[in-house]
Amino acid sequence: MNYMDLLKVINSGMYAQRKRIDLIATNLANMETLKTEKGMPYRRKMMIMKSEPMDDFDSILSLEMVKIDEIVEDKTPFKRVYQPSHPYADKDGYVLKPNVDPIVEITNLMISRTAYEANVTAFKITKEMILKALEMGSK
């Protein structure tokens, strides 16, 4: 167990959060996308993370990195908005819109950002500890 492994773990945390924020940005950007190549409205994407031990032998002792498990589409049904004048309206006058809720996205954005910053703090503290250990060799 050494500082390089610690930094790898922290790095994995930062990377995962950053990718998640990217995903949230994509969701928000496509909030009004009514037709994708598949012909349906944009479906909200979610990120599932998983932990991965650094050493294979003993998972109690080892550090655990975080990895992106997969990116899935949210199966929540699309929103149905009553807009009979809209060119995409169906026979009842409803338009299907992406299942993206901006409030949910913004909330997740704040959570991810806080998590990212927590990793940054962990990095700073780790650096302090390493420098402190070096101090022990200098007197």
Binding site: G13, A16, R20, M65, V66, A122, I125
Partner: peptide, 20 residues
């Protein structure tokens, strides 16, 4: 305390990991 630090660092990296 070094070992404890490594646990905490792992926890922080996995803040958003389901069921962690």
């Amino acid at each position: 305390s070094r070992i404890r630090h490594s646990y905490i660092v792992s926890n922080i990296a996995n803040l958003e990991t389901p069921r962690y």
